[in-house]
């Protein structure tokens, strides 16, 4: 049947249309395949991640499952045999990412403004190249720099304040490593956004008597808002998802939460990573539960950031 269908349609269509059809189908199949992989991944994570709460695991001859409430608000990662808690880890994660944004976003926006609006052409070209290079540095390199130098620096700074650190493994080290990592991402997207601002608006602002600085902050940034927020959202995603680099500098704290800059900390990603290769059974599956929470957290933060974007838009 198909054969005859194809033959009749081939008669109707000329050669160009057939090749269009082939490409159309090819792209369609590729897109569906890739999209279905995402569905498989999410389904797999969900099934694995939910099983600790519904399935029983045999530990030392007894059967256990994990209490979901305790898991979500717990202040100790693990107590033998089946008590897991990530409440404090969620708080630590949000705290670290928030501090990192406070540090990276202003720097990134000012750098972008400087590169696009203030610096002379040759300098801005060189700077832009440097930012692009920075953004292509793999995160593990940031981790190594963090472990070798940033922790040392943090330890040194802490000793000025008379605070003792665990060799510099601390919230501050995590925040600095993350800030260095997401700074180029936000800067690059901000540069693109600012470059796309219409010259007419800028000239209009200047013609009305606003100074260059007033124009930059009140007109350019306002018009480039969407692009800048896209950069921040990408940066937050990168910061929340980073595991290896920060597991090198966080100190993997077993209980919390901790708000001191010089105390050890941990995030959802480092928790997933820690000892993953050496473990089995419940302790293995619970990492997927942490993964589910991480996905939900990223979605929630994206929604919040989008809401903030609308609010900021209304003000400017």
């Amino acid at each position: 049947m198909k054969q005859t269908n194809l033959q009749t349609s081939a008669k109707r269509l000329n050669g160009k249309k057939i090749s269009d059809m082939i490409w159309y189908r090819t792209f369609q199949i590729i897109t569906f395949l890739c999209a279905s992989v995402i569905i498989v991944i999410i389904a797999f994570i969900l099934i694995k991640g939910l099983s600790p709460f519904f399935q029983t695991y045999t530990i030392d001859g007894n059967e256990y499952r994990v209490n979901l409430g305790e898991f979500l608000i717990g202040t100790t990662w693990f107590r033998h045999p089946n008590h897991y808690g990530i409440g404090y880890i969620i708080v630590n994660t949000i705290y670290c990412v928030l501090l990192c944004l406070v540090l990276a976003v202003p720097m990134a926006i000012f750098s972008a403004l400087f590169i696009t609006r203030i610096a002379p052409k040759p300098i801005s070209k060189v700077l832009q190249l440097i930012i692009e290079l920075l953004s292509s540095i793999p995160s593990i390199i940031f981790g190594l720099v963090g472990m070798g130098y940033i922790t040392q620096g943090v330890k040194y700074v802490a000793s000025w304040f008379g605070v003792q650190t665990a060799g510099g493994l601390s919230t501050l080290s995590v925040v600095l490593v993350l800030a260095f990592m997401i700074y180029p991402t936000i800067t690059m997207l901000s540069i693109t956004a600012i470059n796309a601002v219409s010259k007419d608006i800028i000239n209009g602002s200047l013609a009305l008597g606003a100074s260059k600085t007033q124009t930059n902050f009140k007109v350019v940034l306002g018009a480039a808002k969407n692009g800048i927020f896209a950069g921040i959202i990408l940066g937050v995603g990168r910061a929340l998802g980073e595991a290896t680099a920060i597991s090198l500098v966080s100190g993997n704290r077993g209980s919390g939460p901790t708000f001191s800059l010089f105390d050890t900390t941990n995030t959802l990603t480092t928790t997933i990573l820690k000892g993953f290769q050496d473990t089995t059974g419940l302790d293995y599956d619970i990492r997927f539960s942490v993964g589910v929470v991480l996905i939900l957290l990223i979605v929630a933060i994206n929604i919040i950031l989008n809401a903030v974007k609308r609010r900021v838009g209304a003000k400017l």
């Binding site: 040392q152 620096g153 700074v157």
Partner: peptide, 24 residues
């Protein structure tokens, strides 16, 4: 805040050479 951050960051990298020195 940005300046403060930059300062801390600078402290982070520049002091590394001396942190194993006499001060600690």
């Amino acid at each position: 805040i940005a300046l403060g951050g930059a300062l801390v960051a600078c402290g982070g990298t520049s002091s590394s050479g001396t942190s194993t020195g006499s001060s600690v």
